[in-house]
Amino acid sequence: MKQIYILKGLDCANCALKLERKLQKIDGVESCQINFLAEKMTIDLNDNAVDKVFTTCKNFEDGVSLKRIK
């Protein structure tokens, strides 16, 4: 299932890359791309991976917020 999120609060472009790699490694995440400049995350995942994705993002850095738009 493909979902799109607005992802705010990341510190830098390299942090976005690191988070992207972290999320890609989660079981149930098919693919994940974070566009740091557009503040968007496009992720293809199973339902049971959603919680893990959320906690990974929240724990990655302070002030990271996720808002699903699709």
């Binding site: 566009n35 968007k40 496009t42």
Partner: peptide, 8 residues
């Protein structure tokens, strides 16, 4: 515009 599909 916002390049949601993120095709690099």
């Amino acid at each position: 515009v916002e390049n949601a599909s993120s095709n690099k």
